[in-house]
Design a protein around this nucleic acid. Structure first.
Lengths: 245, 245
DNA sequence: GTTCTTATATCTTATATAAGAATTATTGAC
DNA sequence: GTCAATAATTCTTATATAAGATATAAGAAC
């Protein structure tokens, strides 16, 4: 099975082809985040297949959270701005309660040249221009996470401080509405480290406190990396939670 | 929607009822891990529904990795002993390569009384008897992870060192074949800490090296917790990887 | 006249069934 | 041993019906 769902004999099921066509319409922006896509019957006649076949294609996209379905209402393009939680990929939670409030404050924003490693991870040429955003996250009112975010200049042409503030530091929602870039999933890599002065100062911690370092690559359609992130988390009263099935 | 799939009017779709019946047969041990379950058509006639309805029930269980399907062969009860990777829930990987080999060595095994916190997490009464297993994991030949595993005595009656060794320290495979307990999923909680003498000695590290502490609760059918685990991981050359969708 | 309820028509997705295709393993002929 | 036929399995596709949501219109209450 390759990425298109074909087997060794080249046979591709109909519903896989439909899935591909739907994805293309999503990438092209024909159907925008938050908007409904045509009904199953409309799509069935458009692609000349049965409703059940369209349905199977949509089902798989819905299980990937690319689409969201509501019985009786329709199928919608998933959007960060309409999610229940504002930071859907944030795994930091307080030890003794459930996470209620997360607040983000912008530290600063710079135009930068991407270093070699960052450029490689973003699949752009080394030295290409980009952006560096630094911010601080407070969970339940306590400064917990210091983050550095790197964006490639080719996908993000101009990023202004005011723009970030307008979106309340909810970056993925901003990427979506301002740049048409929807983050679908992220890969994280975690390590335990001791922090240097700058970071401990930001988090108001004594030097050499052990911190959780979280490196993230965020992907949009077609597994294209479009954001790099490094966070340092104070885990004295918080933890990183994960469920594996 | 409650856990059984019923809505507010009490209506439960047929395929949800079938899913329930199949799960009951799995819990009761009618179909053992690694074994095939009856074919879709056999189950359809047994439950007096169509093959498609059985199929939908099986599909959901397969997506939860409770069952595994092979076209042309049949549907099988998922088993840890037949998985491609021997440590399916292990998220530790070397920084500069893909994980090739993981080896576990048993340190020791004790009968203990479960402390209050552990007992609460395992939903047994405080002071109930249980087991403590200590072991060391090496990734690519390098000692990386020190683990303490706590088991409740009511689910695990007698655990012998030899039994653990016989299974090459692959505990989830042992739980399955020796105690009939299949681990379906785990919840992990991560923190950055500095290690004490015992642990740094085991991992051959200087004192006060920052370590990744991984607390795990493992669940079997019906979200019943049956194992507690605390691991300390040297993340100098390794990391904890995670993908979030 | 305005507002609220209620019924109805119509749209949506969800469920159930059936028939045939694709895949795998087995059997038998050669 | 090799190859083709066969049987058993899951997979794909199509069709029909059910359940849920929404807009509209008619009627009742105020």
């Amino acid at each position: 099975m390759d990425a298109l769902g074909a087997n060794s004999t080249g046979y591709v099921p109909l519903y896989q082809q439909i899935k591909r066509l739907i994805t293309e319409s999503l990438v092209s922006g024909e159907w925008a985040p938050g908007e409904p896509i045509p009904s199953e019957f409309e799509l069935a006649s458009r692609y000349s297949v049965s409703q059940g076949t369209v349905r199977k294609a949509i089902s798989e996209l819905a299980s990937q959270k690319v689409l969201v379905r509501h019985q009786g209402k329709g199928t919608f393009v998933a959007s960060h701005s309409q999610e229940s939680t504002n930071f859907p990929f944030l795994r930091i939670a307080p030890d003794d309660s459930v996470v209620q409030s997360v607040e983000a404050t912008l530290i600063d924003l710079w135009r930068i040249k991407l270093d070699e490693i960052s450029a490689a991870k973003l699949l752009v040429s080394p030295g290409a221009s980009g952006w560096l955003i630094r911010r601080l996250l407070s969970v339940e009112g306590k400064e917990t996470l210091y983050e550095e975010i790197r964006l490639p200049g080719d996908s993000f042409e101009t990023v202004e401080e005011q723009l970030v503030l307008d979106h309340n530091c909810m970056l993925y929602s901003m990427y979506e509405s301002e740049f048409g870039i929807r983050i679908l999933n992220v890969e994280e890599s975690l390590k335990a480290v001791t922090a240097d002065g700058e970071i401990t100062k930001r988090l108001k911690l004594p030097e050499s406190t052990p911190l959780l370092r979280v490196d993230r690559i965020a992907f949009t359609y077609g597994d294209k990396p479009v954001e790099l992130r490094r966070g340092f988390c104070n885990t004295s009263n918080h933890h990183y939670r994960n469920r594996i099935v």
